[in-house]
């Protein structure tokens, strides 16, 4: 049974979030943390799909965009309450994932990748072209901030608290999920679809469920993003961003909830530190993806632990035995 170690992690998470909020006073860092939080939401969701269920999505930026634009349009243009708009975003993204998932999830591997990629591109084009609704390439501005009981989340620090509390809840829910009946069935269908079916798991239905579930995370992240920036433009939701998300999943570690935080954190902070990223962003992301896949297929943390382990064995001249 896991409770003690488990509890400690969540305690650590809560304390760390609280300590930062209490002592840090530079808006720049809060802004950075807010993007890390939003990216982590996306990456955890994608990790459930890619890392746990073994189903690729190369169009996840589209669900992020659907969430962001549904929130943006409903609040800025129609004056709907932001929280209601957020829920509407979830409905729109969930429905889109459901409708796309039905044909796409019958496909495997590369084909599923191509289908989701195509979907992502279509959404990107719609966001650009439907300027009456979306404001076109120049974007949609005037999105209000979220507020709760009279408190508006309109400073980086307040947003930070909101985003990271939501993130904490989502991380906990995701950790629960992967160790539940349905979570095990999801991991099982990844390891062996036939074996899972032979035990009564409706693998197609379950793939569809986790695809929709994962799109909901992206949509939530999108809504938070829209209300954080108070502005959205299509360029944030293109194919490149989908690839960045996959890179974050792979770097943090497939099938790792906490790794998602690490992957998203690293690849959000690095471009801020290294200006080379601005000119060669996609080259660098591509290189990271390749290097990690080849040398650390289990992701950064577990990969490095594995490397140390095998070094130690070699030094001791021993063989790895089970």
């Amino acid at each position: 049974m896991t409770p003690p170690r488990f509890l400690n992690r969540w305690l650590l998470f809560a304390v760390a979030v609280g300590v930062i909020a209490a002592f840090m006073d530079q808006d720049y860092y809060y802004t950075l943390l807010n993007f890390i939080g939003i990216h982590t939401l996306l990456v955890v969701g994608l990790n459930l799909l890619l890392g746990y269920a073994g189903q690729i999505s190369l169009g996840h930026a589209a669900f992020f965009g659907l969430g962001a634009y549904t929130s943006g349009i409903l609040t800025a243009t129609c004056g709907v309450d932001p929280w209601l708009a957020l829920v509407a975003g979830l409905a729109v993204s969930g429905l889109a994932a459901f409708l796309i998932g039905i044909p796409a999830l019958k496909l495997r591997g590369y084909y599923l990748g191509m289908a989701t990629l195509g979907f992502g591109i279509i959404i990107y084009i719609i966001l650009n072209e439907a300027d009456g609704l979306t404001g076109g390439p120049s974007g949609l501005s005037g999105i209000p901030s979220l507020s709760l009981a009279g408190l508006a989340f309109n400073t980086p620090r307040r947003l930070y608290l909101l985003i990271w509390i939501i993130l904490g809840i989502i991380l906990a829910m995701s950790a629960n999920l992967v160790n539940s009946r349905t979570g095990r069935a999801i991991r099982a269908l990844h390891d062996g679809e036939a074996a899972a079916e032979s035990l009564g798991v409706d693998t197609f239905r379950l793939k569809l469920k986790i695809f929709v579930w994962s799109a909901l995370y992206a949509s939530l992240a999108g809504s938070l993003y829209a209300h954080t920036l108070n502005f959205v433009a299509p360029s944030s939701f293109g194919f490149m961003f989908s690839i960045k998300l996959v890179t974050m999943v792979v770097l943090g570690g497939m099938a790792s909830i906490w790794g998602s935080l690490l992957g998203a954190g690293t690849l959000t902070v690095l471009p801020e530190l290294l200006t080379v990223f601005h000119d060669f962003e996609m080259v660098i992301f591509g290189a990271i993806l390749m290097v990690v896949m080849i040398f650390l297929p289990r992701g950064l943390v577990r990969g490095i632990l594995d490397l140390c382990e095998s070094r130690r064995y070699k030094r001791q001249g021993g063989r790895i035995s089970f």
């Binding site: 539940s180 991991r187 099982a188 990844h190 390891d191 074996a195 035990l199």
Partner: peptide, 29 residues
């Protein structure tokens, strides 16, 4: 055909799938 990334116990727990009901949301919450 085992589920290689799962523990011995987890493998058998999947065997209980048809006799249990908790869905995705129940698992998360």
């Amino acid at each position: 055909q085992l589920f290689d990334h799962m523990t011995v116990l987890e493998n058998v727990m999947v065997g209980r799938h048809r006799l249990s009901h908790s869905g995705l949301l129940a698992g998360a919450l």
